[in-house]
């Protein structure tokens, strides 16, 4: 089943073309890794999947992105509902300056859930699913900034999954974490893919190989290669892909 279908996506910042005619099909309940050198447009591509680029001045987007067959750029799309379906985790952990509990409850309140019991249950379930419950269950009302970096990032996952998204976008989510926290995060991604479609941008080629089933290689705004991860890493079709994953350039 295809979850997201990208067709001829083009994106400009002012006059500068950042993404060039990108097309791909992202299968449901799998992990897609997007790799490529810095400045190749991977984060921009990711942000165009939940329309976070809308906020940036001077952005122009052409082409189509279908989520379950519906173009998310068509004018009648409710962008708030879209972002409820397509969650996001950022490069640096960015919990709100609130309690752990409130961090997760916030998204629920935004989407109109007022039932206290239901909020409580969802907070617990999300924290459990994010492998964080055991560490924070006794201090739910502590400030989220009292957590370690790795815990904060898992809190951000819990926050994202609390509103029951279908897709989770992750923008270099482990770049600010130490190796142990990174490992725990990767294990979590492994578990989450049973329920969610995950798109993860990563600068770390080994990470892509470890966590993903599909890999897309972007280079200067162009999609060079898209394939099953083992194919990309064992028999890349394009010379540039091979050079990149073998570390000839980065």
């Amino acid at each position: 089943m295809v979850k997201i279908e990208v067709k001829d996506l083009k994106l400009w910042f002012g006059n500068k073309k950042i993404l060039k005619e990108i097309s791909m099909s992202i299968p449901e309940k799998s992990v897609l890794a997007i790799i490529g050198p810095s400045g190749c447009g991977k984060s921009t591509f990711l942000r165009s999947l939940n329309r976070m680029n809308d906020f940036i001045k001077g952005v122009k987007i052409e082409g189509k992105v279908y989520l379950d067959g519906k173009n998310i750029y068509s004018p009648d799309v409710n962008v708030f509902e879209l972002r409820k379906k397509v969650g996001m985790v950022f490069q640096k952990p960015n919990p709100f300056p609130k309690t752990i509990y409130e961090n997760i409850a916030y998204g629920l309140k935004i989407h109109g859930i007022k039932d206290k019991k239901m909020i409580q249950e969802t907070v617990e379930k999300s924290l459990r699913d994010a492998n964080l419950w055991n560490e924070v269950k006794d201090k739910l009302f502590d400030n989220a900034f009292s957590l370690s970096g790795g815990q904060q990032q898992r809190l951000c996952i819990a926050r994202a999954i609390a509103i029951k998204p279908e897709v989770i976008l992750m923008d270099e989510p482990t770049s600010a974490l130490d190796p142990i926290a990174t490992k725990r995060f990767e294990n979590l991604v492994e578990e989450l893919k049973k329920d969610y479609t995950i798109v993860i941008v990563t600068h770390n080629i080994q990470q892509a190989a470890r966590v993903s089933q599909y890999t897309a290689f972007l280079y200067v705004g162009e999609l060079i290669e898209f394939n099953r991860t083992e194919k990309i890493f064992t028999a890349p079709e394009d010379k540039r892909t091979e050079d990149y994953i073998t570390g000839k350039f980065s």
């Binding site: 950022f90 709100f96 935004i110 509103i163």
Partner: peptide, 9 residues
């Protein structure tokens, strides 16, 4: 950003 990504206005 975090708030917008959760679908907040």
């Amino acid at each position: 950003w975090a708030s917008f990504a959760l679908g907040a206005s």
